[in-house]
Design a binder for these strands. Structure first.
Length: 424
RNA sequence: GGAGAGGUGGCUGAGCGGUUGAAAGCACCAGUCUUGAAAACUGGCGAGGAUUCACGUCCUCCGUGGGUUCAAAUCCCACCCUCUCCGCCA
């Protein structure tokens, strides 16, 4: 959520900056509701003040044994008047609130302008796509030949967009998870967390998935209703919801491996082959909770943490700065890491690292006490995939495939594979 | 799932329906004292919001949501959560 005061006082500037990301702010509705809100709030609070002082007077009169009937007569109509004023105020505030919740974050000044992903900016590249002296296969064929990837079985069990991994490939996925967690905890200073995979609606509101993106989520039946997490960002970031942290606790660096569940509504026909786009996939997530003045530095660090994983796995990739039209709803700036996939002859997203500045923190009411003035201030939140495990598995298989269809296991994974060097 | 107890400020913990945003203690901050620290003493010390150039004034918040009342932390209802015991279970 954006700062309501910013919207109130700089409406046109806000609208202008949102235009850059393709969002048309309904300034007229906001102005109208805002002036209604102002009048109604002042009126309501006046009535409340009146009620309070008169009730107090009644209390005093009663205590001193005076006749309170005249005073009671005075307040006769007040209650109804107050109820009416409050009802219209609530109504206006709710409408204003809904409008505010639907406004995306402002892109940072450094975000390249652009309407869609074609205008994302390549920041840097690492590694050279391997030149195979044979026809490179994609992970689906590789996996099938190794008897390690069973997509038909998953259709029987669940439906499309699910996968069954068996034997060494299942183990390779586990190895990737362990390797990522170990790297982030040992080398990058993150605390490993285990978190719920089912969360309540408040948590999803806090990180911005609700109310706008309910269709992307799976939910449980019955009461209370739960949502399956679409990313560990949700439980990890919500750890600081409604908290006032000590300044010394910051920065908080948290990591967790979780499955992620996404309905992928609206992606029919996209990435239908293989593991790229699934309803259920594994991901290691990094989250940072930082002081506002350090969040841009933290974004660079966090992105580098994700890059480290790719580098150690010997996977060529490029870093893209998403343009204003392509960044997510809550983000002020996002770097996507795109890994080279020989099977597709393309770079594909494998990590997304974002600085949300105070956008999530405001919804979450996540604050820290600033020692400079002793006042609570909003923290800044960041997160990034470190990495999407399913896609990393795909990348390892495709980039490290050999002529005979075997997969070379990168050195850093071998300790997690009981010393095995090749899957064949 | 059943029975009971309980949810008050950063923490502990008081609080007959009326002058309680909330006693007291701890913690914290500032000052006095001290070479310095500690102790002692003095003072300060919740969050959010409206309005104002500002000083200030006002409103809301005692798990959450309703209700009763001129007036609710205090009474009533529902729900949530925590703890104890029983049952079931990995």
């Amino acid at each position: 959520m954006l700062d309501p005061k910013l919207i109130r006082n700089n409406l046109d500037q806000v609208a202008e900056r949102l235009k850059g990301r393709g969002f048309m702010l309904d300034t007229r509705s906001i102005e109208r509701l805002e002036s209604e809100r102002k009048a109604l709030q002042v009126r309501t609070e006046e009535l409340q003040a009146q009620r309070n002082s008169r009730s107090k007077a009644i209390g005093k009169a009663k205590a001193s044994g005076e006749d309170i009937q005249p005073l009671l007569d005075q307040v006769a109509g007040l209650g109804a008047e107050l109820d009416a004023a409050r009802a219209s105020l609530d109504d206006v505030q709710e409408r204003l609130g809904d409008l505010l919740l639907g406004i995306p974050n402002l892109p940072d000044e450094s975000v390249p302008p652009g309407g869609d992903e074609s205008q994302n900016l390549e920041v840097r590249r690492w590694g050279e796509p391997a030149a195979f002296d044979f026809e490179a296969s994609d992970h689906v064929d590789l996996g099938a030949a190794l008897n390690g990837l069973e997509l038909d079985a998953a259709v029987k069990l669940s439906g499309s967009r699910f996968a069954v991994l068996r034997g060494p490939l299942a183990r390779l996925q586990r190895a990737l998870i362990q390797f990522m967690l170990d790297t982030h905890t040992a080398d990058h200073g993150y605390e490993e967390c285990y978190v719920p995979y089912l969360v309540n609606a408040e948590s999803l509101r806090g990180t911005g998935q609700l109310p706008k993106f309910e269709a992307d989520l799976f939910a449980t039946r019955g009461e209370p209703g739960f949502y399956l997490i679409p990313t560990a960002e949700v439980p990890l970031t919500n750890l600081v919801r409604e908290q006032i942290l000590d300044a010394e606790q910051l920065p908080l660096r948290l990591t967790a491996h979780t499955p992620c569940f996404r309905s992928e509504a609206g992606s029919y026909g996209k990435d239908t082959r293989g593991l790229i786009r699934q309803h259920q996939f594994e991901k290691v997530e990094m989250v940072q909770i930082v002081r506002p003045e350090t969040s841009w530095e933290a974004l660079e660090e966090l992105t580098a943490h994700a890059e480290t994983i790719l580098q150690r796995l010997e996977l060529p990739y490029r870093v893209m700065a998403l343009c204003s039209g392509d960044i997510g709803f809550s983000a002020a700036k996002t770097y996507d890491l795109e890994v080279w996939l020989p099977g597709q002859q393309a770079y594909r997203e494998i990590s997304s690292c974002s600085n949300f500045v105070d956008f999530q923190a405001r919804r979450l009411q996540a604050r820290f006490r600033n020692p400079d003035n002793g006042k609570p201030e909003l923290v800044h939140t960041l997160n990034g995939s470190g990495l999407a495990v399913g896609r990393t598995l795909v990348a390892v298989m495709e980039n490290h495939q050999q002529r005979d269809g075997s997969i070379r296991i990168p050195k850093v994974l071998q300790p997690y594979m009981n010393g095995q060097t090749v899957i064949q």
